[in-house]
Design a protein around this nucleic acid. Structure first.
Lengths: 256, 256
DNA sequence: CGTATACTTGAATTGAGTCAATAAGTGTGG
DNA sequence: CCACACTTATTGACTCAATTCAAGTATACG
């Protein structure tokens, strides 16, 4: 696996008044939304455009954690690997997601492109300076971190307490909801990652993932249009299968 | 399970110049460390002392998320429960740890006392105001959130890719390191939580946890002094068993 | 000091993993 | 455009680690 190359893709025009961020497709969804249009130039000054092809790494576990990234296009995976090669994908990232949050001096995980991706790269030090100028920006980052934490806890429930079928059902529903939040098509899902990736994310083997897909297909809950495109035919039954109602009203809570 | 009662334990002396926080045992470890001694009164003004007895809840999943807590003494667990009762403990908390980070209007998990605990309760809104006055405080909270995120990712690796024995070994080592960071005794560990709690944290059953303890004991890697007190006899072998070296240097990374 | 709870241990079961073979894509170059 | 090689996905047969079920034992507590 090779490190991705840096391309200064959309050339900036020095005299330009409007920041290119103003036209960004994820402008309203990511941390950038914390800044007013007039303030965006502060971001433009410290950003570098990056483009990385499928399979290549944005950074490796152990690399100095010097940057924060905003994914603009494509899909990325974040992985941790044990000494003997067992791999865990702690999350998939889609446009507007932030990658690289770390308190340590090094990244505790690697980040790799699933599809071709383009990202905005911000030096952490420069961002830190902007936090002083624009407290709203830091608040936004804190909010993102907190949301990630909540998602991580859901994933722990999934990994520790759900069956293989429930895991896959939950995963599909999560992707569907995330797709809906971005743009469209909650029911026709594009799954850019391999079965192996899905397995490494759900704590399963490739074979188990495949078998669960087949089971869902035979139950006519989903349709496999292609290996990487599925249609959710019966969302209600998929939700019932997901073991969720993740948060449930505890009976004892109602008594009080 | 009942909600804990609020006790105004260590009575404040109104005329007192020094904040009681100055004498706090976790003063240097928690978010409070972001403030200078002279600034501590700002915290004192918004804090409430809480004490909760074993088994009682600090708050429930679904409760309005109005407070942030700093655990001063004892041990607490954070749980999520599925509709059919399956439970996952996403984390155990010890003195100086922060509980209640949430972006949502409600808590996404409940928090319960394992032992008798005492905590500082801060209204989130009031804290938010302090963030404006003391940016270092917000930075500290962001730093805590980021650390929690890293810990959550480690836990995902554990849940998704480690065997029962590796899970228990990792858990014991983590507790040991956390105990060391606080005060003392890295090798004589006090485990306040039940085997069932440990199981619900590691994605195992009570029986499996018990069997793994027995196995470690028979291998003379640990000694079971009492059900809740163990001694680590051979840290090296415990580490080898933990499957860790959690981050490993990827061979491919070295090539570059 | 007795009773409820928590912990340990053993035997039987099973859900997911492993191993192995086939099928379906994907891409490359002739 | 097709043939070949290669990767990825599916399916089946078998295995095994962890669960479930079932005692039994220790521990804590009123």
């Amino acid at each position: 696996m090779h490190r991705g190359t840096i391309l200064d893709l959309p050339k900036r025009h020095p005299g330009e008044v409007q920041s290119p961020c103003a036209a960004c497709t994820v402008r309203d969804l990511s941390i950038c939304s914390a800044l007013k249009p007039a303030q965006l130039t502060s971001l433009t000054e410290i950003v570098t455009d990056i483009s990385i092809s499928p399979g290549q790494a944005v950074f490796f576990e152990g690399d100095p954690a010097e940057h924060l990234f905003v994914l603009r296009d494509g899909c990325a995976r974040v992985c941790k690997v044990l000494a003997d090669g067992r791999r865990m994908i702690t999350g998939f990232f889609f446009p507007s997601d932030i990658v690289g949050l770390a308190e340590d001096v090094t990244y505790a995980y690697s980040c790799e492109a699933v599809t071709r991706i383009s990202l905005c790269r911000f030096p952490r030090k420069s961002l830190q300076s902007l936090f002083v100028k624009f407290p709203a920006l830091e608040q936004r980052v804190l909010s993102v971190a907190t949301n990630e934490l909540a998602a991580a806890q859901d994933q722990m429930v999934l990994l520790g307490r759900k069956t293989a079928s429930e895991k896959l059902a939950s995963f599909l529903l999560l992707l569907s909801s995330r797709a809906g939040r971005r743009n469209a098509r909650r029911d026709e899902l594009f799954l850019p990652m391999s079965r192996n990736d899905i397995g490494d994310h759900l704590g399963l083997t490739t074979e188990s993932v495949s078998r669960c897909f087949t089971r869902l297909r035979k139950q006519e809950i989903i349709r496999l249009d292609a290996a990487h495109t599925i249609t959710i035919l019966d969302r209600d039954r998929l939700m019932a299968l997901s073991g969720s109602g993740d948060y449930c009203i505890e009976p004892s809570a109602a008594v009080l």
